[in-house]
Every structure is written in structure tokens, then in C-alpha cells.
Design a protein around this nucleic acid. Structure first.
Length: 96
DNA sequence: TGGATGACCAAGG
DNA sequence: ACCTTGGCCATCC
């Protein structure tokens, strides 16, 4: 991992406004990466001080191990999940 | 060197 | 709506 991409990803995630979300793939694209997996990995080990919970799968679901915590954070910002599934059409952050 | 393993994704069955 | 497949990238056996 080079320091460069790490900063890129951190900066993108940090710029997501409260109450909005992005998919891992979206973050990858905005950060100039080719792999969404890499974003997930980065947030997993270096996202503690970031609003990592505003990043989820592109279909609105979240990985099992963090499901509870993530949805709880989002609920606090007004992002409601129906059956553990967020409505991306409604909360996805559109900006460029 | 090779395969398995993730906080992933899009397209097909 | 659920599963598989092929692509993706870094790490760890």
C-alpha cells in the first residue's frame, strides 16, 4: 500500500456528508483506484477515525460482521435500513 | 510459486 | 430474489 492511495481514499470518505452514503466501488472510482476490494481492506484496518459507516455495498447491504454497528450509526444520521438493506437510490451521495 | 481469503462488483442463470 | 463466475488487489500461509 502506498501512502498516496491511502490518503486519497481517506480524503474521499471524509468528504461524504452526514446522512449520505457511497458504495465501495464509488469510493474507489473517486479515489482513482481500480479495485473496490482495496477500499474495503483500507477501511477495515485504517478507517477507525473516519465515517467508514457511510460506505457500504453497492446494492445497499453490508457485510455480516459489522452489520449491526454500521446500521446503528446510519440510523443516527437518518439513513434508515429496511431489512438490513439501505435504499441506495435515495441515500447515495451524488456530487462531483 | 500457488492458492485461499476478504468491510467488493456486475452480469448471467 | 438467490447463486455462480470472472475480475479485482494486497496479504498470508
Amino acid at each position: 500500500m502506498d501512502e498516496q492511495t491511502l490518503e486519497q481514499v481517506r480524503s474521499v470518505v471524509a468528504s461524504i456528508p452526514p446522512g449520505r452514503v457511497l458504495g465501495y466501488g464509488d469510493v474507489a472510482e473517486l479515489a482513482g483506484l481500480r479495485s473496490a476490494r482495496l477500499v474495503g481492506r483500507i477501511l477495515a484496518e485504517d478507517g477507525a477515525d473516519l465515517p467508514w459507516y457511510r460506505v457500504l455495498r453497492s446494492d445497499g447491504t453490508v457485510a455480516e460482521h459489522i452489520r449491526h454497528r454500521q446500521l446503528e450509526h446510519l440510523r443516527a444520521e437518518g439513513v434508515l435500513a429496511d431489512n438490513g438493506r439501505v435504499d441506495m437510490r435515495r441515500y447515495r451521495w451524488e456530487a462531483e
